[in-house]
Amino acid sequence: MNDTWTERLSEYIDGTLPDAERAALEAHLAGCTACRTTLDELRRVVARARALDDRPPAADLWPAIAEQIGVSSGAHHVVSLAERRTRRVTFTVPQLAAAAAVLLLLGSGGAYLALRRPPVEGGGAIAQRGPAADLTTSPVGWVQKTSSRYDAAVAELQSALEQGRASGRLDSATVRVLTQSLVTIDSAIVQARRALAADPGSAYLNQHLADTMRRKLELLRRASALAPART
C-alpha cells in the first residue's frame, strides 16, 4: 500500500484534495487494489457514522452511562442542526478506525450526546474529541483504553437489571434469558478480542468487536428500560 496516498484518502473522501493531487490519486487508485479496498472501507465507515440516528436515547440510565464512558451528559452546549450538518469529518486512517469504533460503540444515544459536545478549540475532527482524544495510535489501543469505561457502563446497567429482578419488576425467567443472551454476546466479544489481538490492523475485526460491544450495551439498555414495564 502506498503510505503517501493512504494518508490522503480522507481528504479525497471529503473532496478537499487539490485538483492535481486528486487526479494523481485517482490514477494511483486505478492500479492499486489495496488503496481501493481501504477507500471502500473508509467510505463505509463514514456512511455509517453519518447515518447514525439523531434521536435522543430512550432510557433514563443513559446519562449515567454516558458519564461512565467519558461522554459528558451534563449541561450540553447545543450545537445547531445547521452547524452539525456542515461539520466536516476529517480523519487519518487510524483515527477513522477509532472513530468508527467509538460511534459504533456509543450507538445512537451516545452519538447524540457526542455530537452535542462543544468543539475542542482548534480541533475539527470527531476523533480529537471525547473518549478517542488521545487514542490515535491504533484501534486496538482504543479498545484497550476504553475497556474500563465500557466495563463501568456495563456494570451500571447490570446493576439496574439486578435491581429490577430483586424488586420483582422483572421476572426470573426474563432475567435468565437476558443473562444467557449477555453470555452469548460476551463469548462473541472474547472471540473477537482474541482475533483482534492477533490481527490488530483488521478493519473488519475492529468493526466487528465494536459492533458486538455496542450490542451488549444496547441489550442492557433495553433490559433496563423493561424494568418499569410491570409497574
Partner: peptide, 10 residues
C-alpha cells in the same frame, strides 16, 4: 474477486 485483504474480499 478483485479486492482482497486478510479477512475480507469483494
Amino acid at each position: 474477486v478483485t479486492n482482497t485483504t486478510k479477512h475480507r474480499f469483494s
